[in-house]
Every structure is written in structure tokens, then in C-alpha cells.
Design a protein around this nucleic acid. Structure first.
Lengths: 331, 331
DNA sequence: TTGTAAGCGTTATCAA
DNA sequence: TTGATAACGCTTACAA
């Protein structure tokens, strides 16, 4: 049996309340002399606090939960790093729960876990929650925020990039570099993210008076394989002169397949990616991208959750930027 | 205030123990009629169980903790997927805790968290724990296992690849393909993993009567940048004809830098990586690798922890294999 | 098959 | 500044 606060109290000849106060650092509620003694005894006995009991009694936990989709994309690490950056400084623990990909069962399970553990807040990363999970999260009253999934108003507060702007800016960039026939690859038409980006794309094309051939839009789910498949769809003599890929990985799929067709990137085809993770810098050619600041998304999300004035959390978009690298060229 | 078991009991006109038994499915200890009623009432009231209270009372949790280094390498995802694969089937929750990189403070914090929460088991992934963390984990009595970090005997049970064999096999493969001057890049000489791989390398070289130039051994920490730096060290006219890189990312760094020097891979330089994650397949040239089965490491580790016969956990190595791709050639 | 009541290891209230 | 003692929400003997 583990050493409890009671054992410590006994050994130190004080009451459990005193031990509790000392060990949880309720300043100004004990003599520093007693404190030293208690702490020593606790250490000697190898006391480890039981967080469950403490949380139960105090009705508060210091745990932040991150629910994350096991996405095939790779930006999650940066978001998590950002979350840790502020959580650590604030003394919070963070636990991460994977929720699979489009897997309602796993999602429900993850959400159930966080509710049952009554964590102090939930960060939902790159995940569009099912109705059931969402509503139980809402009724639980646990503060939560969506990261990197801006969504319809009623979904809840979010911090993300503006996906409409992403689609728009990428397209505009290519148009201004002389491209008129632009493919859009790997978008999930069912998702808010995907539709937003597509709308942005169409808007930019329209703004420049460019017609869109529906054949240029090849759906998918952010994967490498989606890129390959899409490029196969365009074929060895693609009509498009430039392609926007829905993720860095998808862009790589496009480029690899293009290369297999003997097409040079960017000489014969420009490819641009969305995300701008490290992959864009290690791959050759380096990949021009719409870069999102995932680290800051993580930081801001965590900060918003921790911010304890009881105003509701403000949703917001963080800036994106276009980083030119070597996979695109002026036509 | 949340709905508790007590509220349900009251509303359903039964005792709390009955509710408890029904809701935690203690078969054969209640009438199915009562059960249906209780469940309905619970659902109507929106009851959510409090896992802390339950764990506290029952002294057992269904949570597995994964403590993982925020490594710059990228195999962790596969291990985690493997862990989830068996944990999910077994009905366990898994929480992931990041422990930074060579960051004793964060490690201690993570270990402290798992001990305080008295999880049912801990999987330590790609992490060589500091002495303090390790000993508190040991005295806590919580079952734990090291994944992908085979280590000195007294460290604890592990499931991993045999790093000595990795170094040996990679070297042997290159030697048998005609290479006599072989670089070894990105090894952390302080770590067990690194030293094991280096020993394997030396052993293979010796076995074939090949001399080792100490200049061919360039240390590092698995990163892309380590690969670049190491290649810069070898220069535009490298003495070595082949390089073994400590991770896929490191191999990419080597290849990128070689390319910047105008060296063709594999025509002028063969490069082989250790790990064999997806990166080796999406990068061009595809990278010949010593491939580890990370998914199985995750699965086996989780299974070992869950296996409740009270025999101690058996350490073991999982097989590795060499997968030929396009970054190496016969000399 | 169900209920009563004693914990589980803390914190929090109140009195001393 | 400290100590009793009642929670917290659940599980689990033991009794009925």
C-alpha cells in the first residue's frame, strides 16, 4: 500500500490537514518550521500524492486534454509543442488522446474519457467532432477549444488559420505568377476545411476572370497517396500548369508522380503546398507553401483555455503567409 | 453540479450500490429489469461517471500512459498506433505524455504525473530515463516497459530492435555490396542506442578485415541537420563510398547536402538509413533502410503490459529487416 | 437480488 | 497556526 498523507501526518506528529496544507503549498497557513519538518518526513517516507483523491476533493484538476486525430498529416507535432510550451510554464499537465481518423467510436471514447476525468480544459486538434461527442462535451461544461479546425459558428470557439484565405491566397499567388489553369488536389469535400479552401480558390479564379474546369478539382484526404492519384488523374500531359496540394505530403505525392511521368517541377509543372511544415524544406525541390503557424496556434489555444477571466473564449484566425521555395515558377 | 450516482439512485428508487453495480456491469449481481430501469434513468439524467472517484475507490485504473520523447525523429506515431491497436481492443484508455528531449525536468514531471494518477501501466517510448525518474517509477510499483530503447539489464523490461544487430547488418549489407569505406552518421555516443549501433558497425568491419577511420564516424542526434552537417564534414569529395545514417531524416540530410555538392546518390555515394519509416518511400531517391517494425513494437509492448499473469515482463527484440531501395548501389 | 455502511486519499470548513 | 471532521463520488464487503 502506498504512503498516504495520513502516514506522513502520523510520522510527523501533526494532523493530516497540516500535511495537506504544507504539501499543496497553501502559503501563509502554516509555520515554515512545521513545513520543513513535514516535507522532510514526506520525502523520507517516499510519499507520492494521489492526484485522483486531490482532484476529487477539490473539484479541480490541472490536466489539459488534447484530443487529436491520428491524421496522416504531420503538423500536429508543432501544435502539441505549442500547447506544451504554455502549459508547462503554467504548471499544467497535458494528456494527449488519439481519436483516430473519421472514427466516431474512437472519438466518442476519447471525449468520454476527458469528461469522466473532468479535466480542466480540452483542446480539439484537427478534428471535426461528431454531433454526439460534441453535445456531450458541451453539456459537460468543460471549457474547450478547436484548434486548426475553424468551423461553423455553433461548433464552439476555435483558433485556426482562415481556410478560405488559404485557398484564396494560394490561388492568387499562382495566378499572379502567370498560371491560369490551376489544379486543386486532396481537398475533402465533406469537411469544412475542404469546402472553405475550395471556395477561396474559386473566388480568386473568378476575380481574375479565369474559368474553372471541374476536372481540375481532385478530392482526397491530405495523404501522400492522394497526391500520387491526383497526378495520375492529370496524366503525363497535364492541362494544368500549376497544382495546389492540400498538405505538404500531398504535394510530395504530386511531385513524385510527376517525376515518374518525366515532368520536371517546377520547369514543366508548378506545385504549391498548404501547411509549410519542415517537409517543405527537406524535400527537393523545396516546396513553395502557404505556411500556417502551428506552433502559435497551439500556444494561443492553450493560453485561451487557461485564461481564467470568465469571458467566453474568442475565436480567431492566426495569420498565414506564403513562403516561396523552389517548386513553383513564374510562367 | 454534475449528476452523481446518488442522484440516479434517488431518481430510480434504488440504492447507490445497485446503481454502481449496474453501471459498472457487475454481471450476475442485479436483475436485468432493474438494470434497464437504472440505465434509462441514468441516461435521462445525463449521468457521467467520475473516473477519479471510481479509480480511487477501486484502486485500479484502466489508463495506460505513454511517455514519449519529443524526438525529432518520426517513428513514434507508428509505435503509438500499435499501442492503441491493442489497448482499444482491450478497452483501455491511453494517455500520452510528452517528455521533451533530453529534458530531465519534463521527464520528471511526466513520470510524476503518471505516478500520481496511479495508471495501470507505463510505456516509455524512445527515452532513456534519468536516474531519479527511473527510481521513482520503480518504487511506485507501476508496471512499465521501455519501447524502442533496449538498455542495460537493470533498467527494466524492454521491447525494441537489437541496435547492435542494426549497426552490424547495415554495415554488412554495404560491405557485401562492395563498399569498404563506410561512414556512420548521427549516432549519439552518449546513448546506449548509439554505442550499440557503433559497436555493431565496428564488428562487421572487423569481420571483413576492414580498417575503420575514426574520421568516418560523425556523431549527432537523429536530426536532418545532423545529416547535412555530417555530409559537410565529408566534403565534396568524400573518402567514404557509403554512409549509414542514424535515422531516415538524417539520411535525407546527407542526401540533400550531397546533392548540393553535385554528388549523385547512389551513383557517387550510397546512403542507407536506419528506421524505414514512410519517409524512405516518399523521398527521391527512395532510401534503402534497416527497417524496424515500430507498429509491432507498440503492439507487443502494450500486450506485455496488459498480460496479467504475474510473471515479470520478458524483454525482447523484434526482428529487423533490410529493405533495398534506390539510395544504395553495388560498387 | 438489493441495501447499508465503511472506506479510498485528499481538501475544505470550522473551531480551537 | 493547527486539528477534527465532513465532504468528494464511487466501490465493495457484509448483511438482509
Amino acid at each position: 500500500m502506498r504512503v498516504t498523507i495520513k502516514d506522513v501526518a502520523q510520522a510527523a506528529n501533526v494532523s493530516v490537514s497540516t500535511v495537506s496544507r504544507v504539501l499543496s503549498n497553501k502559503e501563509n497557513f502554516f509555520a515554515s518550521k512545521t513545513a520543513d519538518h513535514v516535507r522532510k518526513v514526506a520525502a523520507d517516507l517516499g510519499y507520492q500524492r494521489n492526484a485522483y483523491a486531490a482532484d476529487l476533493a477539490s473539484h479541480q484538476s490541472d490536466v489539459l486534454a488534447v484530443v487529436i486525430s491520428a491524421t496522416k498529416s504531420n503538423f500536429a507535432d508543432e501544435i502539441i509543442a505549442g500547447i506544451h510550451d504554455v502549459a508547462t510554464k503554467n504548471g499544467n499537465s497535458v494528456m494527449i488522446l488519439y481519436a483516430g481518423e473519421n472514427n466516431p467510436t474512437l472519438q466518442d471514447k476519447a471525449i468520454k474519457t476527458v469528461i469522466e476525468r473532468d479535466v480542466m480544459g480540452v483542446l480539439i486538434v484537427a478534428l471535426e467532432l461528431g454531433d454526439e461527442s460534441l453535445s456531450s462535451l458541451k453539456t459537460s461544461g468543460i471549457p474547450h477549444i478547436f484548434l486548426s479546425t475553424a468551423a461553423k459558428e455553433n461548433l464552439g470557439p476555435f483558433i485556426a488559420s482562415d481556410d478560405h484565405a488559404i485557398g484564396y491566397e494560394a490561388t492568387k499567388y499562382l495566378i499572379e505568377h502567370g498560371h491560369h489553369k490551376i489544379g486543386l488536389v486532396g481537398m475533402d469535400e465533406q469537411s469544412f476545411v475542404g469546402t472553405q479552401r475550395m471556395t477561396g480558390y474559386r473566388e480568386a479564379m473568378a476575380e481574375y476572370g479565369l474559368a474553372v474546369n471541374e476536372d481540375w478539382l481532385v478530392p482526397g484526404y491530405f495523404t501522400f497517396e492522394d497526391g500520387e492519384t491526383a497526378m495520375a488523374h492529370f496524366g503525363k500531359q497535364p492541362e494544368v500548369t500549376a497544382i495546389i496540394a492540400n498538405s505538404d505530403l500531398t504535394a510530395i505525392g504530386v511531385i513524385d508522380q510527376a517525376r515518374d511521368y518525366g515532368l520536371e517541377v517546377p520547369a514543366q509543372l508548378s506545385v504549391m503546398s498548404i501547411d509549410g511544415t519542415k517537409l517543405t524544406r527537406i524535400f527537393r525541390p523545396t516546396i513553395t507553401s502557404v505556411t500556417q503557424d502551428f506552433f502559435q496556434i497551439g500556444r494561443a489555444g492553450c493560453a485561451a483555455l487557461l485564461n481564467d477571466d470568465n469571458e467566453p473564449i474568442q475565436s480567431k484566425f492566426l495569420p498565414i503567409k506564403i513562403v516561396e521555395r523552389n517548386s513553383t515558377r513564374q510562367l
